[in-house]
């Protein structure tokens, strides 16, 4: 069960207006780390937006996750420049070291891995962001040490 008073506050902030459900979900995602089922239901009850269309929104936009994310969220930029500079191999190295696929969280809840489309630091690609801190020009062979540094 998630913190319902927090949810009410978020929904109040946007006047329970169905036009701002994306904003509400952004706040829920920021504060709870994901969009729990009861949050989606509560937003639906209070704004009058059908659950189905809220589910559509929660799964359409990349910023939202229905599963809790790990303590450390690793985002691998898969924009065109980073790809051209070798991001695919960096992503594979992370998958191999963490034992998870993009979109998943490690069983101990320490790491989650996610692909993102361009973090805007193309000149120092390939780029990886850990909890919003950007690390540039990372190589596949750096990945193992990089993860050790985090845990």
């Amino acid at each position: 069960m998630s913190d319902l008073s927090k949810l009410d506050k978020i929904i109040d902030r946007w006047n329970a207006d169905p036009e701002f459900v994306v904003e509400m979900f952004q706040d829920v995602q920021d504060q709870l780390g994901h969009i729990p089922r009861d949050a989606l239901e509560k937003v639906s009850d209070r704004t009058g937006a059908p659950r189905g269309s809220l589910f559509h929104i929660a799964t359409f936009y990349q910023a939202f996750s229905l599963q809790p994310r790990g303590e450390n969220e690793i985002q691998v930029c898969m924009g065109t420049t980073c790809y051209a500079l070798g991001a695919q191999r960096v992503l594979e190295a992370l998958e191999r070291e963490l034992g998870i696929a993009p979109g998943e969280t490690t069983p101990d809840g320490k790491f989650s891995l996610r692909k993102v489309r361009c973090l805007g630091c193309c000149a120092i690609g390939p780029v990886v962001a850990v909890n919003d801190e950007v690390v540039g020009t990372i190589r596949p062979s750096d990945v193992a040490d990089f993860l050790t540094g985090l845990s």
Partner: peptide, 19 residues
Amino acid sequence: AGAYVSGESSALMQALTGR
């Protein structure tokens, strides 16, 4: 909230109204 297609003009009009 991040979706490449929502930069398209008619999609952007939808996104602006919470869809």
